[in-house]
Amino acid sequence: MNDLNKIIYNCRKATFLIEKKQLSRLTVREQLELRVHIAGCSICRTFQRQSILINGQVRNIFQSRMPDSTLPEAFKKDLQERINKELEK
């Protein structure tokens, strides 16, 4: 019970578990601890919601094609010419 008490009031540990849960698997004990903490801590609930939001947005960044970042045409032309030259060697 003592251990459980510790996590109930420990936001550092709870936020750690929130992060771990999103990227890996929690142990049964960790799941329980987190559930108990989250049920009673609105601050960590806010953190959790935002953390999930951030991860989703980060994934969007990495998966988006970002059409606005394209190479200058001159750079591309030079590069292809260089490749062609290498091919002729």
Binding site: M66, S69, T70, L71, K76, K77, L79, I83, N84, L87
Partner: peptide, 13 residues
Amino acid sequence: NQWVEQYADYFYA
């Protein structure tokens, strides 16, 4: 001979 046209912008992004 097609690399730049096909992939350069994608790889850059």
